[in-house]
């Protein structure tokens, strides 16, 4: 395990995220409130590409089902639904089940961003 360069610091602006491929792994890198985060680009729920989602507070919102994960803790925070209810509570518990985001250590040094897979 070692840190790999992924991009220049100024490529990751405040409240934005980008996907990079590092050793065949899709890594989502973003910045919120000045803090960088890095996680696997696959949504833990159904594998959708998280870079297509949006940032809301400290969460990334998956575009497929609206699941929200905290990008700093990796925890599932909300199961927003674009269906008739506010959440997916009417769905079976097995369908709703989701793991947490896979987070990667990230650091910024001399104008470059590095992640550790």
């Amino acid at each position: 395990m070692s840190y790999r360069p992924v991009c220049k610091s100024d490529e990751i602006r405040e409240k934005s995220m980008k996907m990079f491929k590092v050793d065949h792994t899709e890594v989502l890198v973003g910045r919120l409130n000045g803090r960088l985060f890095a996680c696997n680009n696959s949504c833990p729920h159904r594998g959708a590409s998280l870079v297509k989602g949006e940032l809301k507070g400290d969460n990334v919102v998956c575009w497929m089902h609206g699941y929200e994960y905290n990008v700093f803790t990796g925890k599932l925070e909300n199961m927003k639904s674009w269906k008739k209810e506010n959440t997916w509570m009417e769905q079976s518990s097995e369908w709703r089940r989701s793991g947490d985001l896979t987070l990667y250590p990230i650091m910024e040094k001399e104008g470059n961003v590095y992640v550790c897979l």
Binding site: R46, K84, W88, E90, Q91, S92, E94, W95
Partner: peptide
């Protein structure tokens, strides 16, 4: 088939 339904990519289209 229960596992199949539980891992479906979309929620169940229940009768409202």
């Amino acid at each position: 088939i229960r596992k199949f339904a539980d891992q479906a990519g979309c929620p169940d289209a229940y009768l409202p």
